[in-house]
């Protein structure tokens, strides 16, 4: 192991410790390269629920923008109803984004006849 490889292993392990897992992945696009920037997303929004899901930075940015565009709850809304509505809407956004990513992947494969999924991605998805 060269000194550079050693340093890389140290950084990699520190990243695993911070993430709390040795197998991080984005729940919507499947990004699993360990050096990617992962963030925890509040599914229903920070205001309504502490439910978290791990996303890559790109997906998190997109979902957060979409979340701000959702209609706000009424002033006198029951908190439990508000939470449930927010969780459902947040979950729907995740599904929408996942669906969009799947369509992207399908379109990409159509454009590369005879290529298998592993060969199609940048680095084979290796950690």
């Amino acid at each position: 192991m060269t000194p550079a490889q050693h340093t890389l292993q140290i950084i990699k392990f520190r990243r695993f410790r911070t993430l709390g897992t040795a197998n991080p992945f984005c729940a919507t696009c499947g990004e699993c390269r360990w050096w990617a920037r992962f963030e925890l997303h509040h599914i229903a929004g920070r205001k309504y629920s502490a439910l978290l899901i791990r996303l890559c930075q790109t997906c998190h940015n997109w979902i957060s923008i979409m979340q701000t565009l959702l209609p706000s709850m009424g002033e006198g809304e029951d908190p439990r109803r508000a939470q449930l509505i927010a969780e459902l809407e947040g979950s729907a956004l995740l599904h929408d984004l996942a669906a969009a990513k799947h369509r992207e992947a399908a379109d990409m494969l159509r454009g590369l006849p005879g290529v298998l999924p592993d060969e199609a991605s940048d680095d084979g998805g290796a950690q």
């Binding site: 292993q9 392990f13 695993f16 410790r17 993430l19 709390g20 897992t21 040795a22």
Partner: peptide
Amino acid sequence: PRAKPQPNDM
């Protein structure tokens, strides 16, 4: 509590 990391593959 945060999950304990698995060892590296070393």
